[in-house]
Simulated assay, not measured.
Amino acid sequence: MFLVIRVRGTTGVIQKVADTLHMLRLNRINHAVLVEENPSFEGMLQKSKDYITWGEIDAELLAQLIAKRGRIEGNNKVTDEFVAENSDYKDIAELAEAVIKSEVKLADVGIKPVFRLHPPRKGYEDIRLSINEGGSLGYRGEEIKDLAKRML
């Protein structure tokens, strides 16, 4: 499971890349989504790599993300009670484990699929360079956890 975060805005985006970002539900800067690891999504990530960053997420960070930034209808926060009432899981941690294993999707439980994050503490690195060149864009691997924690 990948966590994908939009880093750059809409100015000067090529239409095909804009459509790909729209399909990924990344409509604004600092929005994040969860994406499964399969060839079609990996192609979409490669196509829009100049505007996003992504990497693997673990269940612990996903549980924190759902608890702090997860929203349900009416822009209300996700609680353990809500998860217990609307799913087969007793709390957010169990739900996060199931989402990582692709047993359930957030939308099946009633949680919105997009997380609206804060800008990262101490800012992004250069938003026009890839992570290999000292910037913020592209595939990060496990380092996405550090960025996500700075954005919670």
Rank of each mutant, 00 (worst) to 15 (best):
V7H: 04
A84G: 00
K145D: 03
S102H: 10
L137C: 00
L3D: 01
F115Q: 02
I131Q: 13
D91H: 15
V83K: 11
K16I: 12
N132E: 15
K105Y: 07
V78Y: 06
L65F: 02
E125H: 13
K105A: 06
S48F: 07
Y124G: 09
K105S: 13
V104T: 10
P39M: 08
E37W: 10
V114G: 08
G12Q: 06
V99G: 08
I5Q: 05
L3Y: 01
K47V: 11
D91C: 14
R121P: 01
N76Y: 09
F2G: 01
F41H: 14
I66A: 08
F82R: 08
E94T: 02
Y124A: 13
G123Q: 09
R25P: 04
K145V: 10
N76H: 11
P39E: 09
D80N: 15
V109M: 09
I92F: 03
A84S: 15
I29V: 13
R28W: 12
I14K: 05
I92G: 04
E37Y: 11
A63V: 15
K105M: 09
V33I: 14
L129N: 11
Y139C: 00
G123N: 02
G74H: 12
S40D: 08
I100H: 01
D91R: 05
S102L: 06
L45H: 11
L106Y: 04
T11V: 15
N75V: 11
W54D: 08
V33Y: 03
T11P: 00
V99H: 08
R8M: 03
V78L: 07
R8Y: 00
R121E: 06
K122E: 06
I100M: 12
G123S: 07
H22A: 15
L21R: 08
V7N: 11
R8N: 04
R6L: 13
F41N: 14
G135S: 03
V35H: 05
G135W: 01
I111T: 02
S48R: 10
